[in-house]
Design a protein around this nucleic acid. Sequence first.
DNA 1: CGCGTAATTGAAAAGTATCAACACTGGTGG
DNA 2: CCACCAGTGTTGATACTTTTCAATTACGCG
Lengths: 191, 191
Amino acid sequence: MIRTNTAFLDFLIKNSHLFPADSIQEKIVESGCLIITERSNVQKVSIIKSGLAKCYLSKDDGTDFILEFFGPGAVVGEIEMLFDDLSFAAVEAMNTLTVLQIPRDRFKELLTQNATFNSHVIRLLASKVKYKAIRFSFNQTHTLEQNLAKMLQEMPELLDVIAKKDLVNYLGVTERSLNRTLKKLKDKGSI
Amino acid sequence: MIRTNTAFLDFLIKNSHLFPADSIQEKIVESGCLIITERSNVQKVSIIKSGLAKCYLSKDDGTDFILEFFGPGAVVGEIEMLFDDLSFAAVEAMNTLTVLQIPRDRFKELLTQNATFNSHVIRLLASKVKYKAIRFSFNQTHTLEQNLAKMLQEMPELLDVIAKKDLVNYLGVTERSLNRTLKKLKDKGSI
DNA sequence: CGCGTAATTGAAAAGTATCAACACTGGTGG
DNA sequence: CCACCAGTGTTGATACTTTTCAATTACGCG
């Protein structure tokens, strides 16, 4: 459930010659800070080198719906950049992050000039489509209990890594429901 | 809610020189036939020229979850092809379809050799990501009544175009709930 | 120890699923 | 022409799940 992409990260690190003179920058982002804000211009594509971030859409009522959790190698801002459009989601550091940032123009340049880079970006987009399709399908067609059980099975340390509030926004339920279901799973002994 | 992409369709039609000797084929697909079946090898990328199709994931219990409705210009099979992986969803004609089909090898060739083609594919993937994110976020965080009201507002002829069974699988609810909510909307006069 | 804040729980209301009963439709055969 | 039937679509009743919101408990800290 935490999206990573070490292949792309490795590629960037091993091909530093593609980024002369500050065309890639390493940056520290403190927990709680936004890498991308909603409905803003995105000037840089960011790749998470270490740490954990959440990507979310704000709802009218002030609460958020978390689309994905991003770990090492995850790329953010590329969609907005490809459309020359305002961002449609926000990305926020959940702990201290190190990110690599590529300015919009250099990113576009590389996309047309470097075949490997291009192919990485295409596969990364395709993987986002596929992952989203599978995840949302499962989410919508299973009960909270089934969803939680699956997540805990794949990632037993889930509750230590991700705050309940975030989990709730990721699953699209209320905190009350999460608590009740967690208790039920405990009673059943599956947790 | 019906995904289209006339820009890409136009591009293909206007650039027929890119497809010599049967490297693109027009095909008629009868209603109910599958363009892509689940967990199969995808050998061709298909672009819908006319008609309507649904893309879905089958659940364990035999029911489906519809990810998208595809109209003219929609591209299917490109994700599987990019990964050299089995298909993760099925695509089925909802009425008689005409599709353009590009064999896997030619598609990959064009991706590396034709910059415009490449850029179309990238933007098409990016748009799938963005669309899915926004749709699922809304779906999960609103009631059926809100979802239906929004869909009917955007597309008043909805119920004539899409069968209730499909609508139900798209929204991830039961037919009973759809009926009740439709009636409620009628009583309210919003439909 | 007491206070403020955050996290958890209980109870009632709202939303949705399940399943069976009922209605509608278009044949088919008497 | 009508009674019957099968298939399909709709509704009612009930159970279950989730939300809402207030009450309670737990926790950190002066």
